[in-house]
Simulated assay, not measured.
Amino acid sequence: MKSFLLLVLSLTAGCETSSVSTCDETWAVSDYGGSEKYQIVEVDHRGRVERSTKTNMWENKGTFFLFHDTRNKELKLVFLQHQVKKEEFKCRFYQTHGSTPDTERVEKYDCETKTFNQTTYRSAKTTIPCGNHQSRVQFFCRQNGSNCENILSSGPSPQTNRFTLTNSGSISIRDVSSQDDGVYWCGLRSNLTKIQLQVQNITVHEKSSSVGQTLTYWCSYSTSAPSITFICKGEDPSVCKRLVSSSEKNTGRFSMNDDKEKRNITVTVRDVRADDTGTYWCGAETSDRRSNVFFNKLVLTVASVTPTTAEPSVKIPSVNSTSFTDTPVPAAGPLMTAVTAVRICVVLLVLLLVVVLIYKHSEKLKKQRSTGH
C-alpha cells in the first residue's frame, strides 16, 4: 500500500525524505515546478556525487536509482536502503553546464515499489518479464545489500554469459543455479520493477521411448490438492507450452488423470513421435502465473525405429532367353556355402573314379591284344 507524505521544509538546502516507509527502499520525489528547465541533476549521497544528463528514463547509480521527469518537472530517487535519513543526501539542479546549481526541497514522499515473486528451478531456464520491447529496458541489475550490480543494459550487445535481454524485453537466464536466488531490479523508461527470484530443487526423471509406442509416466505432489494441474513442454517452465491439464484432460495424443486423493498424476502419450523428445514439466496453476508450482521434471528421449534391412540378392542369367533377365535369389549363407562345397567334392570324386575305371579298362584291352598276336 502506498504511503503519501507531504513535507513542507523551509530554508533547507538539498532534497530530503521522511524516515517513514512502507517498503524496503526509500523513495524521494522532488517537484521543482515553475518555468525552470534543468539539463543536469546531481545527487550527493553520503559524499558520493552522481550526475545525470539523461531525462525521462530510469538510471542505475549503484546505491540508488534516478529518474529525471522533465514532463512532470520532478526528480525521483529510490535508495536501496530502508529509512534513509534526510541529512544523508542532497539534490542539485543545473540549467546549463557551469551554471549555479539550484536546490529543491522534497514536496512529497511516495513508496511505489512494485515487487514480483518468481520461482525457478536449478539447471533449468527461466524468463523474467521486464518490458514489452528490448529498447525500453534501460538496465537489469542484482541487488547486493545497498548496491545494485548491473547485469544487462540496452545497447548493441544486451547479453552476458547466462543472461540475455530478448527482443520482447524479457530477461532470459539459462543454467539457473542456487546462486541466482535473490533480488533483481528492472528499469524501464518509465517503470521500475523489483523481482524476488527464488531458486528451488526439483525431482528430475529420465525416460526413453520409441516412435509409435504408447508412453505412460507419473508425477506426484506432496502439497494440498491444487485446483488445476497441467503438463507442459519446454526448457523454460515459466514459458513452457501447455499440452494437457486437469480441466482439459485429453488433447489428442496427450491425456492425463489427476488422482487428488493419492496426489498422483498419470500422463499418457499415444503414438510417440520423434519430435516428442524434450523436457516436460508437471505443475499446478497459481493466481500469479509467474509463480506456478512445479513438482517434477521429465527428460524424454525418443529413439527412431530402425527399418528392417532386406537380404542382398545375386543375379543369374535365364537359360530360356538370348538376353539376360535379373532373377533375384537369396544370397548364399554359410550353411549353403558348405553344402555346395560338399557337392562339388562329391562330383569331383565321381569324375576321378570314372577316369580311373576308363584307364584300367583301356590297359586291359591293350594286354588282350598283345597276347592274341
Rank of each mutant, 00 (worst) to 15 (best):
T214D: 15
A332L: 09
N60S: 11
W58G: 04
V49R: 03
L298R: 03
S10I: 12
P312T: 00
Q368C: 06
L215W: 11
T277I: 07
A284T: 00
L192Q: 00
N161Q: 14
Q143H: 04
D102R: 04
I171Q: 02
L365K: 12
L197N: 01
A341S: 08
V314K: 04
P307N: 04
S321E: 13
E36A: 12
F324I: 15
P334H: 01
C345I: 15
T115N: 11
C141D: 04
P330F: 10
T96Y: 12
S123F: 14
G47A: 05
Q179R: 13
C232N: 07
R174H: 09
T103M: 04
L165P: 01
N147P: 00
V239S: 07
S146D: 15
S224G: 12
T337H: 02
V8W: 15
R253N: 11
L9T: 13
F79M: 01
G155I: 02
F93A: 06
L365E: 06
K366Y: 01
P317T: 03
N264C: 14
W185G: 02
S154L: 13
K360I: 11
R51P: 00
V49N: 02
C23I: 09
F93I: 01
V355H: 02
K108W: 14
S210F: 10
V29E: 12
K249E: 03
K61G: 08
Q118E: 13
T371Q: 05
T286Q: 13
N161R: 12
D180I: 01
C91G: 04
A28H: 10
V41M: 03
R290M: 05
P101R: 00
V302D: 02
T223P: 00
Q39D: 10
Q134N: 11
S172F: 00
K61M: 09
G145W: 01
N147F: 13
R46F: 08
S220K: 10
V350D: 06
E285H: 08
K194N: 07
H97V: 15
T100I: 08
G372P: 00
T96R: 09
I358E: 05
K90R: 04
N117Q: 13
G98C: 01
S220E: 15
T309D: 04
H373L: 08
E112Q: 07
I265S: 04
K54Q: 14
D271T: 13
I128Y: 01
N117T: 11
V20G: 03
A28N: 14
N117P: 14
Y217W: 11
S209N: 04
V339N: 07
G278L: 04
M336L: 15
A303Q: 11
N72T: 10
S255G: 03
D288Q: 05
E59R: 05
F294Q: 06
I128A: 02
Q159V: 08
W58L: 08
N132H: 14
H45S: 09
N257M: 08
Q159L: 06
K260P: 09
P237C: 03
V299L: 12
H205F: 12
P334F: 00
I344R: 14
